[in-house]
């Protein structure tokens, strides 16, 4: 099964992962993705009828604890790495459109 990933698909997935890309980049990735995905298609050979997908590695048990308040990083310390902060909050531009 040959499957090509065209530039529109590349641009679509770039949007999904919030990545700005140019037309030239989309072109380059499109070729690379097609050969990588074609390689992955080898998995189609494997019979996985009645096989349960892996969902954990080792510890399949719930871990519960009391919900107690404990000291943690101060707000000031937390905001030290924020590119923009104001009044004890992280500051970002408009999230919801104005129109």
């Amino acid at each position: 099964m040959t499957q090509t990933i065209d530039t529109n698909t590349v641009k679509h997935v770039a949007t999904l992962v919030r990545l700005g890309i140019t037309d030239e980049e989309a072109q380059k990735f499109s070729g690379q993705f097609s050969s990588i995905i074609e390689y992955f298609n080898m998995l189609n050979e494997v019979d996985t009828e009645n096989i349960v997908p892996a969902s954990d590695i080792a510890n399949a048990e719930n871990i519960l604890r009391e919900d107690v308040v404990k000291p943690s990083m101060s707000r000031e310390e937390f905001l030290r790495n924020a590119p923009q902060a104001e009044g004890g909050y992280v500051k970002v531009p408009t999230i919801l459109g104005e129109e």
């Binding site: 990545l19 998995l43 096989i51 349960v52 997908p53 969902s55």
Partner: peptide
């Protein structure tokens, strides 16, 4: 960039079963 885009592709509607879920089944094997 390549890997996160391919990840989104493998997880996206229409491809999830063929790639992500299939890979988790073969992982069991």
């Amino acid at each position: 960039k390549r890997r996160i885009m391919l990840g989104a592709y493998a997880l996206s509607a229409g491809y999830y079963d063929a790639y992500y879920l299939k890979a988790q089944k073969v992982r069991t094997l």
